[in-house]
Write a protein that binds this DNA or RNA. Structure first.
Lengths: 233, 233
DNA sequence: CGACCCTTTGAAAGGAATCAACTTATGTGG
DNA sequence: CCACATAAGTTGATTCCTTTCAAAGGGTCG
């Protein structure tokens, strides 16, 4: 899973493949809606999401949650903890998740022996940052329906990049309330925007699954340009 | 300048200091309001800001600018280009800037010889990402005046961390319109929020200089917690 | 002095939030 | 298998904050 993801930036050397395959992973199942990393924590390991959805979020003093990123299988949502010791946010599951943990020490020992692997792990964190930048623009400058369209396009592309889409759709376990916490919108706005997209024949979102009916118009509406995903440079 | 910044995460070894001091920098002056890196560019060098203010921004299809980050002396605003080949945003000056360029090759050759320096450069990009995350929460969940207060607190802390503050304030060359492009607000809202902060006796912003009169109340209003800056882990 | 840029002000319009139901799924136990 | 409880989605009415529009001050610099 990890090797497949890292190969998105070009093939790995045989030695790097071997080193990755020898890493000791601790596979754990985590129930839905569980924050397993909290603000202030100082973890000594990272996780690789194998199955499920994970969100990164923070709270205002009033207790409102803002989701900063949504992670899909193949992502390492807390890779930044390798060099930023203290967590400044929460990491939690949306749906029941299978997660593989690996110690910081093991990663660091492996990276010491391959500058190419170091570059690829570093690059993964840089792509995370590119997604944040796109989110800042989307949430500040697009209207509610455009934001939702953009978000759905992003999710499609990322699911597609790891082979988790079928002909027209992908599984998507978030609620409308959570999507509101991603986009900085109320649940009512998300609902109405979704109805617009549905009425226009662009998207169907039903029972944990999104199907895209008209990619071109959806991407046009959301001003979606996949460059920021850096799926291939 | 760079060494000072990197030392924020602990002292450097003598060998690392020597390697840094031997890097060849190309020092250039860039006039105000100039985007010297554009979306789609594939730069082969990075820059270190020595003096002035630099912004990272993107545009909607309607031509509205959203500023994603503000960079102050000591920052390397385009360090991500080391491993993300294609620019997905613009980098430009606010005020006249002095910038030192260094080739990717030179950085990579240096980092190959020091895993500690690699970690510190990597960490710089991770802190950038932490700032983006804080911006996502701030711009989505805080009201206009709170956003402005939070932004001013962030700027103060970062200027202070590189020794560019005096007793109560720091130089700040942005216009209200630009701050609006940072916070996702209209210039009118920025102006009115600023008047509120001024009337409350929290901040004075006049002629390219910000002075903070009441840090505690300002930070309280902006729900500002400097943890996300990772100034010391 | 005048042009230009930036700040400030007032009034009106608009989009999203909020509030408060109601409806539809999902799930549990009797 | 149905009764009930709970979670998620839907709807309408109202309120509020921010934007937009338009114009007037204020500084700075050639």
């Amino acid at each position: 899973m990890l090797a497949r993801r890292l190969r998105a930036a070009g093939s790995l050397s045989t030695m790097d493949e071997v080193m990755l395959s020898r890493l000791h992973w601790d596979v754990v199942d985590i129930p839905a809606k569980t924050d397993f990393l909290k603000e202030g924590d100082r973890p000594n390991r990272c996780c690789l999401l194998i199955d499920g959805l994970i969100i990164r979020s923070n709270f205002t003093q009033g207790g409102e949650r803002q989701i900063q990123s949504v992670h899909i299988p193949g992502d390492m949502p807390d890779l930044q903890s390798l060099h930023l010791k203290q967590m400044d946010h929460y990491i939690g599951t949306v749906s029941p998740c299978r997660v593989a943990f690996i110690s910081h020490d093991a990663i660091l020992r492996t990276l010491e022996r391959s500058k190419d692997l170091t570059a690829r792990f570093w690059r993964e964190t840089l792509i995370d940052a590119a997604l944040y930048r796109a989110i800042i623009v989307r949430n500040a400058r697009l209207g509610s329906t455009e934001r939702l369209a953009h978000f759905i396009c992003e999710m499609w592309c990322r699911f597609d990049a790891v082979g988790l889409t079928d002909a027209s759709g992908f599984p998507f376990a978030m609620t409308q309330e959570m999507v509101g916490q991603v986009l900085g919108l109320s649940i009512v706005s998300v609902n109405r925007s979704m109805q617009l997209l549905r009425a226009e024949g662009l998207v169907v979102w039903d029972r944990g699954r999104i199907d895209i009916l008209d990619w071109d118009r959806l991407a046009g509406l959301g001003q979606f340009d996949p460059t920021f995903l850096h799926l291939d440079d």
